[in-house]
């Protein structure tokens, strides 16, 4: 099978969606001359009204997408950096997410909020380093976060053709990853997690760029005799509760690795969910590996010290396995 980068897979999904359905449109800042390649070639191939460059007005162009969706289109709204959803928050959480119930089921809002370049690393500092998916989930916005090029394509196509607003979060640290991607159009279903590695001792539920980090940790743990199962939810809301519960029931241990805020974060939600559902199977307390509850710094050592990675995941697994406590100083801010 041919391989594609994560960004090229996203680009192929946009091309295939627009070719399949005339109502699909893409809008956002610098769509035609994108700083990355995810929207490349769309303006040459499709009618001008379907590929729109917008001024720096995130609130208005998000509301524009909501209205276009109400009038029958399927807009994909790109945010060049994930944190740029904040200026548009009213239109996302107070309008798009609420309108269907509030209007008693009238209308349809098939909007895709396409959050590019999510997460930290590389000195992007406080305002360009967020993984804002817990905010979206809390507001009831369906949210997916592909960890591989194959899922990037399949989940973007699924998001576009879902009849509700869906946020797709594309982690900055994965955009250059390359792997096999089927050529035909396919949709990766929401609410279906996937096992990335089989193991009997502990389940690591990892999100986004922490999926490869968890796999790296699992390899090292295997050489120490601990077999970790790595489970990628892919779809954060709706969440495959049964899929994760089955894994936790088998292994009896759970580490949740999520690079967003610790308090009221995704890992907190998954931990309480599994504590409620799988308590009788648990052999050890559930551990979370998250970002520290601080603003991300520019300077490299303190940026790194606030962010979770493979070493922190490995430490958490060793802790729940009862082999060793995390080495002093290795996870100072993760508790």
């Amino acid at each position: 099978m041919r391989t594609l980068t994560y960004v090229a897979a996203l680009n192929e999904a946009l091309h295939q969606a627009m070719a399949e359905d005339d109502s699909v449109m893409v809008l956002g800042e610098n769509i035609r001359n994108g700083v990355r390649a995810e929207t490349r070639g769309l303006d040459e191939r499709f009618a001008p009204g379907r590929v729109l460059d917008m001024p720096i007005s995130e609130a208005a162009f998000t509301g524009f997408a909501n209205g276009a969706a109400m009038a029958g289109l399927r807009p994909v709204v790109e945010f060049q950096v994930a944190s740029l959803i904040f200026p548009a928050f009213d239109q996302i959480v107070n309008q798009a997410a609420k309108l269907r119930l509030m209007l008693g089921g009238q209308g349809r809002l098939p909007v895709t909020f396409f959050l590019m370049g999510a997460g930290a690393g590389g000195g992007r500092a406080g305002q360009h380093s967020d993984n804002p998916y817990p905010f979206l989930m809390h507001a009831g916005v369906k949210t997916v976060i592909p960890a591989t090029p194959e899922d990037a394509k399949g989940l973007l196509l699924a998001a576009i053709f879902e009849d509700d607003p869906v946020a797709l979060v594309a982690p900055a640290n994965l955009l250059g990853e390359e792997s096999e991607v089927p050529e035909e159009a396919y949709r990766t279903p929401l609410a279906h997690g996937v096992r990335r590695r089989e193991g009997r001792d502990v389940t690591i539920c990892a999100v986004g760029h922490l999926v490869p980090a968890a796999l790296a940790a699992a390899e090292r743990l295997a050489s120490a005799g601990m077999e970790a199962e790595v489970w990628d939810p892919r779809s954060l809301l709706p969440f495959d509760k049964a899929g994760l519960a089955a894994s936790v029931a088998k292994t009896g241990r759970l580490v949740v690795a999520d690079d967003s805020g610790r308090t009221c974060g995704f890992a907190a939600e998954v931990s309480s969910l599994m504590a409620e559902r799988c308590f009788e199977f648990l052999k050890a307390p559930i551990k979370r590996v998250t970002r520290a509850d601080v603003t991300i710094s520019y300077s490299t050592p303190i940026e790194a010290a606030a962010l979770p990675g493979d070493e922190e995941i490995e430490g958490a697994v060793r802790a729940v396995m009862g082999h060793t406590e995390p080495a002093p100083g290795s996870t100072p801010v993760h508790g």
Binding site: N66, A68, A69, Q95
Partner: peptide
């Protein structure tokens, strides 16, 4: 009442205006 072109009253001041713009764009396309 979508059947009569009423895309909703709104509790947030100004929030309907960008939606009207998006709907207008859909009509034109």
């Amino acid at each position: 009442d979508f059947s009569r072109g009423i895309y909703g009253a709104n509790g947030i001041v100004g929030a309907g205006a960008p939606m009207a713009c998006g709907a207008a764009h859909a009509f034109r396309t």
